[in-house]
Design a protein around this nucleic acid. Structure first.
Lengths: 140, 140
DNA sequence: CCCAACTCTATTATTCATATTGACTCTAAA
DNA sequence: TTTAGAGTCAATATGAATAATAGAGTTGGG
């Protein structure tokens, strides 16, 4: 299951994708009904992952770092860490499983790498813009 | 990431697949270097999922409930609960996500259902017997 | 009858996700 | 140059899930 953080990340990103110019944390939180303070943590991570950029001071706020059609689901999903179901099948955070006898003789590694690969392919070929059409307009 | 329980489950199952007749909890635990008491919980769940059968009394122990080539990875993975990354994309435990505005307007549901489907297909077409050949006589 | 096995019910420990708090920094505009 | 509106940072609860442990109870073959 994906984390609440990732859900909020998706919602915030879709919100930004439907907005123009910098949007304040407060308005995202209010409109998406997310705890302002928790959303703050989410936004910091989104920034760290280079999915949004921020500006300070009056008129400051957040914007997508790239056009919506260049932000893939895979890019957002990383908020939850590696895609793989075991460390040894991970591309981004590969490491041997503790107590692994020998990767060459591992009975689960190859299957879970297949799964990781399949999942990545699907998540990478979908972007935020795939769904902008069906989302309700922002009415504020 | 899969849970420790699921890892132990795989190891225990592979161990049984390479054994003959009932195997005691104690021998699985000793050979696979798993806490005897924790493995007990794992075996209870494996039994509940009908992946193993047990017999009591002297000479008792655990055996695979079916031939190894009829036990798929998907069957074992269920130890960790639903395959889907969101409740609304789950086949086995479907329910609406909390705070879901409208499933028809959900921007993540359809993608995550694709992922669930792809994952299930991969896990279902692999069975324990796919890997019996490469495993050492004892110890995964 | 007895021992070696599984079974059941608790309890504890650890980790992780979720959330909240308060103080701090920056910057455009008045 | 002041200031209000914005993002930033650090620290700390809280709660749920996972992992592990403990001990008493049951079963059945020899």
């Amino acid at each position: 299951m994906i984390s609440q953080k990732t859900r909020y990340a998706f919602r915030a990103l879709f919100y930004l994708a439907r907005s123009k110019g910098p949007v304040s944390l407060a308005s995202i939180a209010a409109n998406e009904k997310i705890s302002r303070k928790f959303l703050e943590l989410v936004m910091v991570e989104l920034k760290r992952h280079r999915l949004v950029v921020s500006s300070r001071g009056k008129k400051g706020g957040y914007e997508l770092a790239r056009p919506a059609n260049e932000i893939s689901y895979a890019g957002v999903r990383v908020m939850d860490g590696p895609l793989a179901m075991v460390p040894c099948a991970s591309v981004t955070a590969h490491r041997q499983c503790r107590a692994c006898y020998d990767p060459d003789f591992c009975a689960i590694r190859s299957v879970l790498m297949e799964v990781r690969q399949g999942t990545a392919e699907i998540l990478e070929r979908h972007t935020l813009s795939d769904f902008l059409g069906i989302l309700p307009k922002i009415t504020v």
